[in-house]
């Protein structure tokens, strides 16, 4: 059967079985959506985890009368405390610069900050705990110990925020696994439909075409072409749905965790990369081609 006949038969088949074809597109779209969702969750979890690892967990504010040498000695002392990954000394000017940068978008606050002098904000030592530290316990214990050191006026433990971030990362991972599981189940269902519903029709059509002298290649390739095309359309639909929905899902997750740090962690998170899209589409197309090959006739003669 040449291309003209193949296209004609494909067009007629599509017209005759519009609902079934749309069902196939929907199945591939759902599968792509779930896989893409799982990938997005994994990416978000990674971003949040990275933020947890690199975040400032404890801030020790220094008294105004503490001189530079003593502050440096205190920073060295804190570095020797078990569980501390790194420390950073922040002077008044840097603290003000950061405050201005953080409130840059607020027009009213920007006006207020103009009148603040460089030495107004306290100096501080920002402490990052090592990734294997227990943020809740170690952070609080460290805060208590640092608070007792002369020259430290106040200690702010960020443990609660860090814990929320960790919870968010865990939630994203769980969601990702759940979506992946759902994707596998959906794939199984798609395969089941192919095995069951279309089998009789497919076997009958192949038997007729074989009887009339159609070659195996000419029987199989239009079917593979059709299922591959359906898979591509499904992948595009899935990408569109993910693109429209991922912003809303991100906002919901931030709202759910109610963590300021969470929004910072999400700030750099983007949509699926072209590579992700290519791999996902390729997977769906390979699945589609595989379904197209199912129950294809084999070139063998019957003997009597």
């Amino acid at each position: 059967m040449n291309l003209a006949w193949t296209l004609r038969r494909g067009r007629r088949g599509l017209k005759r079985r519009t609902a079934r074809t749309l069902g196939w597109v929907g199945a591939f779209a759902l599968l792509g959506f779930l896989l893409g969702g799982a990938r997005l969750c994994a990416e978000r979890a990674r971003t949040v985890s990275a933020h947890v690892g690199g975040a400032v967990h404890v801030i020790a504010y220094l008294r105004e009368d503490m001189d530079g040498a003593r502050a440096a000695a205190l920073q060295q002392l804190v570095m020797r405390v078990p569980g501390v990954e790194k420390t950073e000394f922040v002077d008044s000017a840097e603290a003000l610069r950061r405050l201005r940068a953080a409130t840059k978008e607020l027009a009213t606050a920007a006006g207020l900050l103009e009148s603040i002098e460089a030495g107004f904000l306290p100096r501080s030592i920002e402490i990052t705990l090592s990734p294997d530290a227990s943020f809740n316990d170690d952070g609080r214990r460290l805060a208590d110990r640092i608070a007792a050191i002369p020259g430290v006026s106040e200690v702010d433990s960020m443990a609660a925020g860090v814990m929320r971030l960790r919870a968010l990362a865990g939630l994203l991972r769980s969601l990702g696994w759940a979506l992946l599981g759902l994707a596998l189940i959906t794939g199984g269902v798609v395969l089941g439909i192919a095995l069951g519903r279309d089998r009789r029709e497919r076997v009958q059509r192949d038997a007729v075409l074989e009887l009339l002298g159609e070659t195996r290649v000419a029987i199989v390739w239009p079917r593979m072409l059709a299922t591959g095309a359906v898979a591509v359309v499904g992948a595009l639909v899935a990408t569109g749905l993910l693109y429209l929905g991922f912003g809303w899902v991100d906002a919901s997750l931030q709202s759910l965790t109610n963590a300021a740090l969470a929004s910072q962690a999400h700030a750099g998170a983007g949509f699926l990369s072209p590579l992700d899209f290519a791999i996902g589409t390729l997977f769906l197309v390979v699945l589609g081609l595989g379904l197209g090959l199912l129950f294809s006739p084999r070139e063998q003669l019957r003997h009597a």
């Binding site: 009887l211 002298g213 070659t215 195996r216 003669l301």
Partner: peptide, 16 residues
């Protein structure tokens, strides 16, 4: 060859 048999069948009108 088995792959060539279809080309023979095209010359036969067969009613099973």
């Amino acid at each position: 060859q088995a792959s060539s048999v279809p080309f023979v069948r095209r010359n036969i009108g067969y009613l099973p």
